[in-house]
């Protein structure tokens, strides 16, 4: 079972190597002649003013929080969806298995409607 994952580990290592090697290669081959103008942050030719790591819109947080909610919901849907055919084919749990997930989704939808009407999804 676990040895099936060995090629995946190797593949991830190869991926990382491909992420690192070109930069090392570029570092070795390419010229390196920095000067103050070249290293200044790009700002359409102006001198950079303020720190670039500035305050940003709170809506990004909101999006992040909503994303976590929905993504978790999907993570819970995965195992259920994987055996849904079996649920459908097992008479004893057929309706319960279906109804339970619909209730789960319904609760999500309630929150979704709330977020929508409260304007959390607006992006002006």
């Amino acid at each position: 079972m676990l040895e099936n994952y060995f090629p995946i580990l190797l593949f991830i290592l190869v991926g990382i190597a491909i992420g690192v090697l070109p930069i090392v290669l570029g570092w070795l081959i390419a010229p390196n002649r920095p000067d103050a103008e070249k290293l200044s942050p790009y700002e359409c030719g102006f001198e950079a003013f303020e720190d670039a790591r500035m305050k940003f819109d709170v809506r990004y947080y909101l999006i992040a929080i909503l994303f976590i909610l929905f993504d978790l919901e999907i993570a819970f849907l995965f195992p259920w969806a994987t055996i849904f055919k079996e649920i459908v084919n097992t008479e004893a749990v057929k309706w319960f298995g279906f109804a339970e997930m619909m209730v789960f989704i319904a609760i999500l939808v309630v929150g979704y409607i709330y977020a929508w009407v409260k304007g959390a999804l607006e992006w002006e």
Partner: peptide, 27 residues
């Protein structure tokens, strides 16, 4: 071409970021 690391950049994170972008895309 020269790999420019801008002044004020967080050098290591700056250099790791492209690797973090490509590694999952391949893996």
């Amino acid at each position: 071409k020269e790999i420019i690391v801008p002044s004020g950049a967080d050098k290591w994170v700056y250099l790791i970021a492209p690797g973090l972008a490509i590694a999952p895309a391949l893996a």
